[in-house]
């Protein structure tokens, strides 16, 4: 397991009376993009939230960079170098874009070079710098959400459905940005329903169903095998492209 940046072993999570994760085993190799697929309700978001410490695992362990982070609280997990982009674009709407960004740079002032790189990836961040984040469009909010996660170098970024509900042009911009991020040796764990995007970005893939990982392997194994796709997800992913 030592060669994996993040590994989950036998992870169980209960939310109230519901047993959501029922023994998740997942290994995220360092560098590259790991995509987590699965139908709605399979437990993808819960997996990310359990890693982040929002839910506490009732059983099993989470190791990040060879440290057990299972019982740490959310701020400590974040400070170990994991950033999280939740699916609801949870930006701080009452603050300006600038304030959102400087809050995210938790270790001091924003690095100018890094900021230039981020605004290059997401031009609206620069052009709406002093606007209230609440006035941004959906796509811009999502860009801010991702930009905030990468304003400081992180070892691992968890991204939950970054293209949900966005226009095709913005999906393309987002895909390009994530591809460039991948070049910087940042490890990404991506939850994505859009298979076209997932397969173009992903190096490794894991498919979830009913709170368990039912398939894990290289992305090429899945893209080249329609039968496997059908078996895993109950329908051919080709139709979604």
């Amino acid at each position: 397991m030592a060669d994996h940046l993040l590994s989950l072993s036998g992870l169980h999570t209960h939310i109230g009376p519901y047993h959501i994760l029922q023994g998740v085993d997942l290994a995220v190799p360092e560098g590259g993009v790991t995509v987590l697929l699965g139908r709605n309700g399979a437990g993808k978001t819960t997996t990310l939230r359990t890693i982040m410490g929002h839910w506490t695992a009732s059983q099993g362990e989470i190791h990040f960079a060879n440290h057990n982070i299972t019982k740490l609280d959310t701020p400590s997990i974040s400070r170990r170098g994991i950033a999280f982009v939740p699916e609801d674009m949870a930006i701080f709407t009452d603050l300006t874009v600038a304030e959102n960004m400087s809050l995210a740079a938790a270790n001091g002032p924003i690095d100018a070079k890094r900021l230039a790189w981020v605004t290059d990836l997401f031009p609206p961040i620069g052009s709406f710098w002093n606007s209230s984040a609440g006035t941004l469009s959906g796509g811009q909010k999502q860009m801010l959400s991702v930009a905030r996660a990468i304003i400081e170098p992180r070892r691992l970024i968890l991204i939950d459905e970054p293209t949900k509900g966005l226009a095709p042009a913005i999906i393309k911009a987002m895909t390009d940005a994530l591809r460039e991020l991948k070049e910087t040796d940042t490890t990404i764990l991506l939850v994505e329903q859009n298979f076209a995007m997932a397969s173009s970005l992903g190096d490794t893939v894991a498919v979830m169903d009913d709170g368990r990982i039912v398939f894990a392997g290289a992305m090429s194994e899945l893209t080249g095998n329609p039968t496997l796709q059908e078996k895993l997800m109950g329908l051919s992913l080709e139709v979604h492209q």
Binding site: P75, S78, D94
Partner: peptide
């Protein structure tokens, strides 16, 4: 203000 807006988000950035 960030904590008031969204406590979990603030925690995920690393604020107690």
């Amino acid at each position: 203000k960030a904590v008031r807006d969204n406590a979990f988000r603030a925690e995920a950035i690393g604020y107690k």
